[in-house]
Design a protein around this nucleic acid. Structure first.
Lengths: 115, 115
DNA sequence: CCCTTGCATTGACAACCATCGATACGATGA
DNA sequence: TCATCGTATCGATGGTTGTCAATGCAAGGG
């Protein structure tokens, strides 16, 4: 709860594998895992993930995502930032456009935690 | 958002398998999935899950959970209710004590969603 | 019968968060 | 250089939520 609070979740969680539920979790480990799960536990962000995954090439730019989700562009941009900071999305700037793609490995890690 | 809002998540989500991310999610499906994930996306609840899983017989009563988690008894009771309504915990009353155990299948379903 | 013990519910409060409109910024093109 | 387009950031706001103290309630035990 000091400096690490301001760090993006991605950096913090990347420092080590997200612990699983087989052994009792301490408070710190639980908070790290919870932050990761919170990034996914939102309707709009789940729609964004599925939309990006279903896009050709597995990537999409913001302009392609705003309409299907039905939210304002700033809101969509906000959600994409959250997912990116959680390490679940990769962002690549191509000219004027920002292209987002899913980090499959990170998503698989998260999935494995609940096994 | 009418009557279904008052229903426990368990009933609502049990009516059908929680959709996965392979196809674009509509708003309704995303909200159902998000409610399920929200139940897990909390440090205290993750600790409770791991603690119950690590308990002998895979079950524990509230009195055994309060101390290790470090939260007040009403708060622990609240979290257990959330997890139970999400279908992730099973509750069994035995005399004065309430015993909670993990619904492994439901947790596995949730894990599979992120695959 | 009380009295204790284990758990759930209620009410209140602070913190967090999803959302939007307005605005800023950077790249591209005329 | 200026206008435009695609994104990101800011500030405000309404709603959600995690937490606790106080209380309620049911089951045993003396």
């Amino acid at each position: 709860m000091t400096a690490s609070r301001e760090l993006p979740v991605a950096l913090e969680a990347a420092q080590c594998c997200p612990a699983d539920l087989t052994a009792p979790l301490d408070r710190a480990g639980a908070e790290r895992l919870a932050r990761l799960l919170k990034a996914v536990a939102d309707p709009a962000r789940l729609q964004l993930l599925s939309q990006i995954k279903a896009s050709p090439g597995g990537e999409a730019c913001v302009c392609d995502l705003t309409a299907p989700i039905g939210l304002s562009q700033p809101t969509v941009s906000h959600h994409l930032k959250v997912l990116t900071e959680a390490g679940l999305l990769n962002r690549e700037q191509r000219g004027t456009w920002a292209w987002y793609s899913i980090d499959g490995q990170r998503l698989a890690e998260l999935s494995a935690v609940l096994a």
